[in-house]
Design a binder for these strands. Structure first.
Lengths: 245, 245
DNA sequence: TCGACTATTAGTCACTACGACTATAAAGAG
DNA sequence: CTCTTTATAGTCGTAGTGACTAATAGTCGA
């Protein structure tokens, strides 16, 4: 097989190559508020604007591998093991990058306890920004971020995704807080507890452990993520749209 | 802006271009069985093998536009208006095409009444194949097809997607048949009816119309798709996995 | 015309799930 | 000790659901 020449069947397209990037909407909870990781672009286009972290997929990488690498480069986060990474969707409108044809594969990542990021190679600066204050972003990243938020909110209902926001051992109060922050609604605590414990495989108790970390009130029991990935029954959010009479 | 030259910031990747394709998992119901549209590849690689229809995204197209165009080219289907097209996910493993780096954006399409396809430009042959008999496919198309089936099955639960499999006016029996064929399970007819009619915006009755098409038994009332896109409450499938005691 | 036969539509019943709410338990602060 | 705070336990009425029975309205065949 010839290396640099283009094989038969591909030639009429190969003179217009595509660049492929991987962008990440990295979400976490800081001080009880949903935050997203943003970088300040260090070069044109959109120099000085805020954007989602990401970069070009290299020839020997899958898009997911590239996403993990870019995230480590731009945040200095080395421990990617406790990182929940999920493909969101691909954005391919011809004019989404003003310079050339760039197709981006967007990912959503969730972090339990956010590290303090630092500026890396491509990005002039990286920091956590409250989701509500994530202003106009470069390219179509506003839409990507909104899609990521929608997806995460929906997946909380029927998957055990919420534990990815929590440390390895967590209280039910912390788990409930994840739902409240992402959905933007308050939940009844006894009912939430009943539903979580009634869903097999969602969480399992840590025997004899309780959170003692300086909180007032009764110490809460600790739980670990269970074996289930999908929740039966699901944890439906209150009135996502018009409720039946 | 210079045309053929590569702008600053992209140059170190541009010498390794990616090809981007759009592939489709087109599903329909024929004779009560779930079918998928396959093409026989007319050229290498995988010449003579069956594959999902699809093709290269052209420079002025989005992936979705390319998917619609390819589908029309390879099946002769001109009426793309009643075609439900949805992005599935993107497959970007470096070795998924043996010749060069090809990233594919996969789509799922649902057709209500399948036309008889004919071979087109790129494909030697195109035809409907029962989902269960869709043998080993070219590239990673087996996995794409399985992912499409999973996604459609899941979306039936909480969206009004099933009406996309049905003609503009349909009976509740036809709608139920969609669920049974995709899920591979039998459903209780009175209960299905009760749940569909209790979900606001799912379907709305066509006044005074009934299906008279030569069937035995009582003629069924006709319904149209309603205005809802998500279902509340959802139509959960029976015991997708271990049921609680 | 008179049943079979078939498919749709209506209704029953027990059980589960859930929202709203109240009550108790266990810690720290003063 | 007492008040405050948070976790945990329980109650009650209602809505949703699976399994099932019954009635309705057509076609088909003798």
């Amino acid at each position: 097989m010839p290396g640099p020449t283009v094989p038969e069947g591909y030639d009429k397209y190969a003179h217009e190559p595509f660049a492929v990037t991987a962008d990440l909407a990295v979400l976490t909870i800081r001080d009880g508020v949903l935050h997203v990781l943003l970088v300040e672009r260090g070069q044109e286009p959109y120099q000085g604007h805020w954007a989602l972290p990401g970069g070009f997929v290299q020839p020997d990488e899958s898009a997911e591998t590239a996403a993990r690498r870019e995230l480590a480069e731009e945040t200095g986060l080395s421990d990617v093991s406790e990182l929940h990474l999920e493909q969101l969707r691909t954005y391919s409108e011809p004019d989404r990058d003003p310079r050339m044809r760039v197709v981006t594969v967007a990912f959503t990542a969730l972090l339990p306890h956010p590290p303090e990021p630092h500026g890396g190679s491509d990005a002039a600066q990286a920091c956590w920004v409250p989701y509500d204050k994530a202003g106009p972003l470069a390219f179509d990243h506003d839409r990507i971020l909104a899609d990521a938020h929608d997806r995460v909110g929906a997946k909380l209902e029927y998957s055990s995704l919420a534990t990815a926001f929590c440390p390895p051992e967590f209280t039910l109060g912390e788990l409930q807080h994840v739902y409240e922050v992402v959905w933007g609604t308050a939940l009844d605590r006894p009912n939430f507890r009943r539903k979580v414990l009634a869903t097999p495989g969602f969480v399992e108790p840590v025997p004899g452990a309780a959170r003692l970390t300086g909180g007032r009130g009764k110490p809460a029991a600790l739980y670990r993520p269970g074996t289930a990935t999908t929740l039966h029954p699901p944890l439906l959010r209150p009135t996502p749209e018009g409720r039946p009479a």
